[in-house]
């Protein structure tokens, strides 16, 4: 079932009077419970496509449809509201809030998503998710005391605590070693399945593609090929 659909997305940047096509008419749809990977060389436009899909910037032309909402027709506040309540984000650097404990990072996201859960239910939900990502013993730790892998697992827990419909992950394993990268990818895949999220992932690491359902290879702002890995 399609959760997010991108239709003929184009993005042009003007630099010193000359315009450059960063994205040249990309169309793709994200399915519930699937991890879709965008891969390609640096400058192929994969990260730009992810940020457009996430409503962080608007395309020059084309449509992004999220549950029948045309993202480009929405106000900045309406897009922010969708990001807060329906989307989750994992960045290359974990980007945890330095003055919040691991548990508080998750509670902040529930606040932001205007969760209707009560205080104790929120805490219980955070505890369950931290157990799922293997961080229950680090719930009162601050980001400065976490390892790179722990930070990224905390960031993933934060990104899904409010049960988003779409998860955007931009190079989530780039700052991790191979073993930790595999752990993080497995976690992302498991959560995508369990919570029935549509996940869009940007990675340049070929090994990590093993943990995805679909791979879209991008080259020079266009889709070079798409492989479905679903058995």
């Amino acid at each position: 079932m399609t959760t997010l659909e991108l239709k003929n997305i184009r993005k042009q940047f003007t630099n010193g009077g000359a315009s450059e096509d960063i994205l040249k008419g990309i169309s793709l749809s994200l399915q519930k419970g699937e991890v879709t990977a965008l891969t390609g060389t640096s400058g192929s436009g994969k990260s730009t496509l992810l940020t457009i899909a996430a409503g962080l910037q608007l395309p020059s032309s084309g449509d992004i449809l999220f549950e029948e909402n045309r993202m480009s027709a929405l106000s900045a506040e309406a897009r922010r509201n969708i990001r807060a309540t329906q989307f989750g984000f994992v960045f290359q650097s974990a980007h945890l809030v330095p003055f919040l404990t691991v548990e508080e990072q998750l509670l902040l996201m529930l606040d932001t998503a205007e969760s209707t859960l009560g205080k104790s239910e929120r805490t219980q939900k955070a505890a369950r998710l931290l157990q799922l990502v293997g961080l229950e013993h680090r719930r009162h730790a601050y980001p400065a005391s976490l390892s790179g892998g722990e930070k990224q697992r905390a960031a993933i827990a934060r990104a899904v605590i409010h049960e988003p419909k779409v998860l955007f992950a931009d190079e989530p394993t780039a700052s991790l070693d191979s073993s930790r990268s595999r752990d993080v990818m497995k976690l992302l895949l498991d959560l995508t399945r369990e919570l029935q999220i549509a996940t869009l992932l940007v990675t340049h690491d070929e090994e990590m593609l093993n943990y995805t359902d679909r791979v879209i290879h991008m080259s020079d702002g266009a889709m070079a090929r798409a492989n479905s890995l679903i058995q």
């Binding site: 922010r80 960045f91 980007h95």
Partner: peptide
Amino acid sequence: LYGILKAMGV
């Protein structure tokens, strides 16, 4: 940090 929080919807 503010930019990241805004990206997340804060």
